[in-house]
């Protein structure tokens, strides 16, 4: 169940990588900002986090598009965009972390876990509402995303760019328009996943972003870089393996995702569901 949330965590990152070959190392920081956004709106204006999901998606998507036009076109032209974007977004992540520390201080924030009401009883098993709500929202958002990517015109264009930039351009698709759209959606998804991070991951503070980035990478690499369906699979694998490790070998649980990541990188560098196209 938590697996679907993790899928949502990874999806935005994967979309951006898939479309632009840009490694967004600040992904976790956008998640963190999303969490703070929801926290602040709840504290100040009593906006329910579920409502924040919608607001933040729009706000962060616009922010993402701004960032896209600021950086990405120049990056993509360079000799080694993948490596440069890695370093560039590391810088962006430092900036976000510093600004967030100035704005929000260093204390971790978390929501009252009972804010969505008591546990739900389903099939004779109790599901705490603070996990159930993220699950439902993740499910809805993932479904919407897939509808968007596979059934709509802009989605088709984005998939075309993922397949081959040059061919897409040759077919008259406006690369920048759709890339920026994908970038915006990617950042928006990160913020939305962030709204629920305090419930699933525990307290969130400005430095949490880095850990979340690493987890996101583990998820999308397990699935497969650049493949949206793989991300869901990666999220599920991550969620389940984390649960199993905590049950049987709790003291080793924190390195489990990394071991899994390395093993998969070495055995199948393109991810479990990858298509296996890679150059040496």
């Amino acid at each position: 169940m938590i697996g679907l949330f993790y899928a949502l965590v990874g999806l935005g990152l994967n979309l951006i990588f898939g479309v632009m070959k840009v490694v967004n190392l600040a992904h976790g920081d956008f998640l963190m900002l999303g969490a703070f956004g929801a926290y602040v709106s709840y504290q100040l204006w009593h906006i329910n986090p579920i409502v924040s999901v919608l607001i933040e998606f729009v706000v962060f998507a616009l922010l993402g598009m701004l960032i896209y036009f600021g950086f990405v076109p120049r990056l993509v032209q360079s000799k080694d965009p993948e490596m440069l974007s890695l370093i560039l977004f590391f810088g962006v992540s430092q900036v976000i972390e510093a600004l967030a520390t100035m704005a929000f201080g260093v204390n971790p924030v978390s929501f009252n876990v009972n804010m969505f009401g008591p546990s739900l009883e389903l099939f004779h098993q109790a599901y705490p509402s603070y996990l159930f709500v993220p699950f439902v929202v993740s499910l809805v958002l993932l479904a919407l995303m897939f509808f968007f990517i596979y059934k709509t015109k802009p989605g088709t264009a984005i998939r075309a760019i993922m397949g081959s930039r040059d061919e897409a351009a040759a077919n008259g698709i406006s690369i920048h328009r759709y890339s920026s759209l994908a970038f915006g959606i990617g950042i928006g998804l990160a913020a939305v996943a962030g709204v629920f991070a305090p419930f699933v991951v525990g307290g969130v503070d400005p430095t949490t972003g880095t850990d979340l980035t690493t987890i996101s990478f583990a998820i999308i690499v397990i699935g497969s870089l650049g493949n949206p369906i793989g991300t869901i699979f990666g999220g599920l694998v991550y969620g389940i393996s984390m649960m199993l490790m905590q049950t049987y070998l709790p003291s080793w649980a924190s390195i489990a995702p990394y071991v899994l990541l390395i093993l998969i990188l070495l055995i199948r560098p393109s991810g479990i569901l990858g298509r296996g196209v890679r150059h040496a």
């Binding site: 938590i2 996990l131 699933v200 991951v201 525990g202 307290g203 850990d211 984390m242 649960m243 905590q246 049950t247 709790p250 003291s251 649980a253 924190s254 390195i255």
Partner: peptide, 10 residues
């Protein structure tokens, strides 16, 4: 458990 553990649900 590792000190970095942030989820005790399981």
């Amino acid at each position: 458990v590792p000190t970095s553990t942030s989820n005790y649900t399981t």
